[in-house]
Amino acid sequence: MKSILVVVTRQIGDVLLTTPLVRQARVLWPDAAIDVLGFAGTLGMLAGNPDVREAIAVPAKPGFGGTLALARRLWRRYDLALVADPGDRAHLIGLVAARERAGLLPARNSSNWWKRKLLAHAVTSGGDLSSEHVVAEKLRLLQPWGAPVSTPQVVGPSSASLPAALQAKLQPGYVVVHTPSMWPYKQWPLSHFRDLIARLAAAGRQVVLTGSGSDTDRAAVAAMHGAAPDSLLVDAGVLTFNQLAGLIRGAALYIGPDTSVSHLAAACDVPVLAIFGPTNPQRWAPWPGVPQSFERVALSQTLGKVTLIQADLPCVPCGKAGCENHRASRSDCLPAITPERVAEQALRMLS
């Protein structure tokens, strides 16, 4: 294989969790040109990735003209397409781009029959309650060409210098806390985060808050103001992915919910404390980079540098989008994880 296209038309975290697949393709074909295609705004996690020649950003809704232009650009440009997204569009992109294809299929879908006909190798996804992590599932796309020789790592973006004003505020041993979640059903209560920050500050730890420039993220960060003395509470502002990676790599600990930044923190090889609600950690926990797998449920469990906390409720994890199974749903399991529990675990890790 001299040229390979990896198709991952999903969210930011999915792009990051595809980097072990890219790394393994690089191991198998060290001289190949490897490109990654994804939605515009999701490929920043690949900035500085040494395994990727080009990150190809496409609009989520390109229209007829955009689709035609993309097809002309990609037509049979690659020897192999690795379709790391079970969606119809991703498979059609793979068909246009490469002469040979390996791809993910959903467990049950009416379009599976034609997708399977297009693939030299198909991997059927186990779904959100599967015991197989998404990283391991994606790696099975390369089974016909050889198994990984070691536990592949998630490759985060390279570090970039922080804004001077932010760098000047940082104290040794700071803790990065990411309070926002993209979807309400994954949001640990902001009041719990305030309590947690106050407890960390009382122990003498400086807390650095992160978040994107979206209104939701900015509101979640602003809600923390006043939770600790000014010298012990820093709003990092809106950073690039490279700056965010640099900030996290300098931290003594990262604390966050089930979100892409938590996956980034694990890739940055710092201690991670992840707060999980309805999501199955066997499937979606931050990748620990070790051969073992997380248990489906445990009050607290640690693999590598990743510690994960869940609620003591019989429904955990349900694998659904909250109690009402939609993105704006509540998740009763998240408020049940008390800030006292999280703070105690964080201080044990810091000690």
Rank of each mutant, 00 (worst) to 15 (best):
W29K: 01
G277H: 12
L28C: 10
D85R: 00
D85S: 04
R23Q: 14
I93M: 07
R283I: 04
D35Q: 06
P229R: 13
P62N: 09
H192Y: 09
V135I: 13
L273F: 14
N242C: 10
H178Q: 06
L264W: 06
P281I: 12
V272Y: 12
A102S: 13
A245Q: 03
A346L: 14
L43A: 01
D85Y: 02
S150L: 11
P172I: 11
G156H: 01
A343T: 14
P172D: 08
L247W: 08
S191W: 07
D217R: 00
D79Q: 09
A32P: 15
A107N: 09
T124R: 15
V154E: 04
R23V: 08
A198P: 07
R199I: 05
Y78G: 01
A160Q: 04
A107C: 04
D235Q: 08
F241L: 05
Q24N: 11
L233Q: 10
M224S: 02
P50Q: 11
R26P: 13
V6C: 08
R199D: 11
V221L: 00
G319T: 12
G156V: 11
S159Q: 13
G319M: 09
A321P: 06
R283P: 08
R53L: 07
A336Q: 14
L334P: 14
S110A: 15
A164C: 05
V135F: 06
G66S: 02
A245K: 00
E54Q: 10
V22Q: 00
G204K: 02
K117W: 15
E324R: 12
R89I: 03
E340A: 15
I56Y: 00
V155N: 02
Q282E: 09
L82W: 00
R10V: 03
N109R: 07
